[in-house]
Design a protein around this nucleic acid. Structure first.
Length: 280
DNA sequence: CGGCAAACCTGCGAGC
DNA sequence: TGCTCGCAGGTTTGCC
């Protein structure tokens, strides 16, 4: 489910329920997700007060009053749900549960278990192996077209592949890369290093616009993503190309017959959607 | 180091 | 109805 906008949506849902609250009970219902869960996860969290909930790339960072940080990644199918009162019976694939001193219950559910959680002790967050090589946050002040072009300049791989690389830019995934390249008018096959000058600034603008719009929409709900409240995101209705193979391109309206329309190709094992006429 | 395929795991829809 | 196949929002690992 989750790319930057979805994780940001989850963060915004969790923050008001967790920040400043004491975790009165925490429990892991199985020993592992993608990797083993931290030893005694429940005991380490129980009694702690949550100081903040943040996001870095696609990671949720839940800060605790002892200086440690719970790091959570949702993988492909991870979900947090909040029940402010009277939580229903456990569902299939509920793996981790927290209860707060206000009686709210937060559950992590993840059918595919590609997600993971870890705890970084005070001071160890910056050097955490999952976080220490992540590139700039696209919505931060220190990211702009120049930084972007610089990050791309030695890459021979297609721009699609480079933008998926979290060390180049943080938080983009398969959906938003297709959408961003479509809006920027850049072919996904173009060599990353050739995205310079005007193209780089168009790409930068497309990244910022698409991410901000998707966050405003509560993310994209294709099959799994829910806001922690249970509500669906609705940015999927604004997709230009993702999942629209064979449809007329909404940008140039070229039709499907022979040359036009939205195409789907495979790039490093993953689907890319684009318009051959409009993206160069 | 760069780049790609495979691996991790479950669920769903399409097609037979 | 039921089986098989292909596909899915991510990341790591191992192999050129």
């Amino acid at each position: 489910m989750p790319e930057l906008p979805e994780v940001e949506t989850v963060k915004r849902g969790l923050a008001p329920v967790l920040e400043g609250r004491r975790i009165v009970q925490a429990e892991a219902l199985r020993p592992d997700l993608r990797f083993p869960l931290p030893n005694r996860l429940g005991q380490r969290l129980t009694g702690r007060v949550v100081s903040h909930v943040k996001r870095r790339a696609k990671f949720l960072l839940i800060g605790l009053d002892d200086g440690a940080t719970l790091i959570s990644h949702l993988g492909m199918s991870g979900r947090f749900r909040i029940f402010k009162k009277a939580p229903p019976a456990l569902e299939k694939h509920d793996h981790v549960i927290f209860r707060t001193d206000q009686g709210a219950e937060v559950r992590y559910n993840d059918p595919r278990r590609f997600g993971f959680m870890d705890i970084a002790d005070a001071g160890a967050l910056i050097n955490h192996p999952m976080l220490n090589s992540i590139g700039p946050e696209p919505l931060s002040d220190n990211f702009d077209a120049k930084v972007l072009a610089q990050a791309l300049k030695d890459r021979q791989a297609p721009i699609k592949t480079a933008l998926l690389d979290q060390s180049v830019i943080a938080g983009l995934g398969n959906i938003y890369v297709s959408e961003v390249l479509f809006r920027a008018g850049i072919s996904p096959k173009r060599k990353a290093a050739s995205v310079i000058g005007l193209r780089a600034s168009k790409l930068y603008n497309a990244i910022v616009d698409v991410l901000n719009q998707a966050i405003s929409a509560g993310g994209s709900s294709i099959s799994d993503h829910r806001q922690p409240s249970g509500e669906l995101g609705y940015f999927q209705h604004s997709f230009g190309v993702y999942g629209r193979e064979g449809e007329a391109c909404p940008g140039c309206n070229c039709n499907i017959s022979k040359t036009g329309g939205v195409r789907r190709i495979q790039q490093s094992g993953r689907s890319t959607f684009y318009c051959t006429k409009q993206q160069r």
